[in-house]
Design a protein around this nucleic acid. Structure first.
Lengths: 225, 225
DNA sequence: GCAAAAGTGTTACAGTTACACCCATGG
DNA sequence: CCATGGGTGTAACTGTAACACTTTTGC
């Protein structure tokens, strides 16, 4: 074999290569993952082959966009799965990404193309090693939550302190003390109050906004509870 | 195109796929990386194509073995680089791994095939995006050092407390208090004393051994200074 | 006996946790 | 006026950081 030339608009794909995307979102007060129906009652992570002309991350972003309509979500490479045993009769390299989309992204957007949201603790039977991939993505998400500001990527533009706290509790699966949580998250300086209040049952709550300029991941570990 | 069948001993390779290995070791009291000479005064990370029949990690382990003679070193997948722009005229997906080999592995073993050790803070001109890959591997190594027992993979089977401390200082690039370091590392219970002493200049030092059974990465973060 | 590295505790400080009541609104 | 969720401070405790001298060996 020899080197393959290609031009910048080459639409052919590498046969043995795909990207997969583990798309997380908060839906109905639960952390959910978007899955596509497959033949044989199995579900699978959304994924696509990679064009010669596009980067891996672009391919993942396109797959994310076509399912959720969200183009600028948080997207991070997770791991590359490429063992010969993971699929019989064919070699397949899957570069897995994980994505976080805000809770206020249109619910039904994800349900085009036979896709559905499943709570991470209540998954259907999954194709290949996709269960393992989701488990790893979840571990990484929980882990990152503790030393970075990644949790805000799951929230709408503005949110109340209680909403952030519920988000953290939902992902980490444990209760957090309200006063300690507020003190810390405010001390970290990564959110700022807006003039607006959210009114609902009970006393109205101050709405806050995330400050992406704040250097969160740097230096300070375990920023949050 | 269509699906490619293959059998378990298929030696053909995927043309656009390679593994790269960032091999770290402590040499002459510095943290060094193994690089191979390339045409045009450039140096590159050791790497190889992936056979259809072998896993990515196997391929990385083989590349590591053939350069260092170490078959059971610490090996971890780092990141997959696959943007079209990283090499002109050809699409190349590089799955990068990083490896740690003990300081007492034979020095010259790495120097077969025109390879040489370079201190991480004094690297030669590098091919493609390999400088970026090394920088990322180093960041990850430093990071992991703080919440896992990965540092022991760079040490011989037995070592003195001062040797571990110097290892940490070398990688993190900062001084650590001797008494605090010892107290913590002993409290963590991940090393145990051996009957042996190491004699040299000054008072002989107790030799310790790493206890791989100790659950290090679990639960406790920031185990070390 | 002196140079060189090993070994050893205590105190001050900072950060974390635990904890309970009043406030503002809608119905 | 009451049910609902929002908002607030302090004290005990735990972990971390700073710090200097004695011990054992080889030369």
């Amino acid at each position: 074999m020899e080197t393959v030339g290609f031009d910048a608009k080459d639409d052919t794909v590498l046969e043995q290569l795909e990207v997969l995307v583990v798309i997380f979102s908060l839906r109905e007060s639960r952390l959910k993952v978007l899955l596509k129906a497959q033949a044989g009652d199995l579900w699978a992570l959304p994924g696509r082959p990679v064009r010669l002309s596009s980067s891996l991350e672009q391919a993942a972003a396109e797959e994310l966009d076509c399912h959720t309509g969200v183009a600028d979500a948080y997207l991070e490479q997770l791991y590359t799965y490429g063992d010969p045993e993971r699929i019989s009769g064919r070699r397949l390299i899957s570069v897995a990404y994980f994505a976080l989309i805000p809770a206020d992204a249109p619910y039904t957007a994800g349900e085009a193309y036979g896709a559905r949201w499943f709570a991470v603790d209540d998954l259907p039977p999954l194709a290949m090693d996709h269960a393992e991939i989701i488990a790893y993505a979840l571990r990484r998400l929980r882990y990152k939550l503790e030393y970075s500001a990644v949790g805000f990527q799951l929230l709408p533009e503005t949110f109340t302190l209680s909403e952030i706290q519920r988000t953290y509790e939902m992902i980490l699966g444990e209760k957090i003390d309200k006063r300690n949580f507020r003190r810390r998250i405010l001390a970290a300086g990564i959110i700022e109050p807006t003039p607006a209040l959210r009114t609902g049952e009970g006393r109205p709550a101050r709405l806050y906004r995330y400050r992406p300029d704040a250097v969160a991941e740097v230096k300070a570990r375990r920023l949050f509870p």
